[in-house]
């Protein structure tokens, strides 16, 4: 089980990273990915992360060709098990699996027996009996994917569990940053908005720090989790100060039910103080780049002008998502029996 406390040992591993994406073709024996599942960024070494990013760089090239189909996962069965509705993550995993030649089956909660009272464990046991090779799971409860991983024989990828982790999102964000800035080490990354409920924020904090970035969390105190400063991040409740000299501005989605009085008083007030518009963005470095895991609430946490502007990487993040998921599927498939 990859749940150690070893996620933040960035020092001394930078040489493994300095190869960057341009050199991957010349690295002869790829470092293996020594994990059976991908349940979180926590527990991955910087070397593991870099290996995945390097593979993802190659997957980007594959996806940009006319002939995108590979045979890496031919004969393998991939089940996308989504207990929470998702459009982009689920389709991203589906496309990634298909490009690698896997047989992909989507199972979402609305059409499943979970609604009839079947437990998570029973669902896991049922699917396991169908002999899949990889299960991709999203669940609304933190730790649910870990629980499921203990009950199946195949590889498990966490596609988001509650407010815990969303590792492939953090990997795709890191890939996007690395391809645009050429590095991650030393960059100032401001993660802004609803950090409290965000698995994207947690995975990103751990990953970016492991690769040597300076991470800030920016948001109203009602949306910052207890003990967040113990993660080694800088905490700001003033957006302009939090964005000062930032290289990357990473916005988080604010869910509708949290907008009206429970965590912030109103959309209007939230946008005024924490919505990313050109004026606030001007406090970041002139070449700062803007990211958002999607789906965006335009006019709530981000202004359309910024979302669609020249500094935005939001579309590229989606492309990188497919590449990172291809890399993850391939890395885990190599560790499967007879793989």
């Amino acid at each position: 089980m990859c749940m150690g406390r070893g996620g933040r040992v960035a020092e001394g591993r930078d040489s493994a990273y300095s190869g960057g994406f341009k050199m991957t073709a010349t690295i002869a024996p790829r470092p293996s990915f020594p994990h059976r599942h991908l349940l979180g960024i926590e527990g991955l070494s910087p070397l593991d992360i870099t290996a995945l990013l390097d593979m993802a760089d190659e997957a980007v090239e594959v996806s940009r060709q006319v002939e995108k189909k590979r045979t890496t996962l031919r004969g393998r069965t991939q089940i996308n098990l989504f207990f929470e509705p998702s459009t982009r993550t689920q389709s991203s995993f589906e496309i990634a699996g298909k490009r690698l030649g896997a047989d992909v089956m989507n199972m979402s909660v609305a059409s499943s027996s979970v609604k009839k009272g079947e437990t998570l464990i029973d669902t896991a046991a049922t699917l396991n009996a169908m002999r899949p090779d990889i299960i991709v799971v999203r669940h609304h409860a933190a730790g649910a994917v870990h629980l499921l991983a203990r009950k199946v024989d195949c590889a498990v990828i966490n596609a988001g569990d509650g407010a815990h982790e969303h590792p492939t999102q953090a990997l795709l964000d890191a890939l996007t940053i690395r391809r645009n800035k050429g590095r991650i080490e030393g960059l100032i990354v401001a993660i802004c908005g609803d950090v409290l409920h965000s698995r994207v924020a947690r995975s990103n904090i751990i990953l970016l720090q492991a690769l040597g970035a300076r991470v800030r969390c920016v948001g109203p105190s009602t949306l910052l989790p207890a003990g967040i400063e113990r993660f080694g991040v800088e905490v700001y409740t003033d957006m302009r100060r939090g964005l000062a000299d930032a290289d990357i501005v990473m916005m988080l989605r604010l869910q509708r039910e949290r907008m009206n009085g429970s965590f912030v008083p109103s959309v209007k007030e939230y946008f005024r103080y924490f919505g990313l518009d050109r004026e606030k963005l001007s406090y970041a470095k002139p070449d700062a780049l803007v990211m958002h895991p999607g789906p965006m609430n335009r006019g709530v946490e981000i202004d359309s002008e910024v979302a669609d502007g020249a500094q935005s990487l939001i579309r590229e993040q989606v492309e990188m998502g497919v590449a990172v998921r291809m890399a993850t599927l391939e890395a885990l498939a190599r560790n499967l029996p007879n793989g």
């Binding site: 933190a142 730790g143 003990g227």
Partner: peptide, 15 residues
């Protein structure tokens, strides 16, 4: 318990 560990596990805390 509310605090760093709950935040790491992504679980809501009890102050």
């Amino acid at each position: 318990n509310e605090g760093e560990l709950a935040t790491r596990l992504g679980l809501p805390g009890v102050p």
